[in-house]
Nucleic acid binder design. Structure first.
Length: 109
DNA sequence: CTCTTGACTGAGG
DNA sequence: GCCTCAGCCAAGA
């Protein structure tokens, strides 16, 4: 594992932790903020190890606002429940007011 | 070392 | 607006 890779993973966790309450972002937005817009998949892969790192992975979805990573949570609808608890409208693993709750790290940080 | 898979995205039909 | 294809990078078999 190269140091650069570790740095990339650490940055992903760092950005994810800075997502405000009731807001969400996309893998691509994080990847772009990390100067690696082509590594959006790596962001998702990094989130796979987010457990135990205090990273709100449920606030990170794909560009369509779809909860593609819900299967990685314990329950089938746990991710959706967490988002709804923060005031985000989610129907069938799809964020409805995605444009309103979307949070771009490049704009806020 | 090669092939497959994946929590993605953008472009083209 | 929906579907398909290609590019991308890392990890596991």
């Amino acid at each position: 594992m190269k140091p650069e890779t570790l740095n990339f993973f650490e940055k992903v966790y760092e950005v994810a932790r800075q997502i405000p309450y009731g807001r969400v972002t996309s893998y691509g937005a994080i990847a772009k903020y990390l100067a690696a817009p082509r590594s959006a998949r790596m962001v998702g892969y990094a989130m796979n190890g987010s457990v135990g790192k205090d990273v709100p992975a449920h606030r990170v979805v794909n560009r369509n606002g779809l909860l593609t990573g819900k299967h990685h949570f314990d329950g089938t609808n746990l991710m959706q429940q967490l988002l709804e608890s923060e005031g985000i409208i989610v129907i069938n693993s799809q964020i409805q007011n995605f444009d309103e709750v979307f949070w771009d790290p490049a704009q806020e940080i």
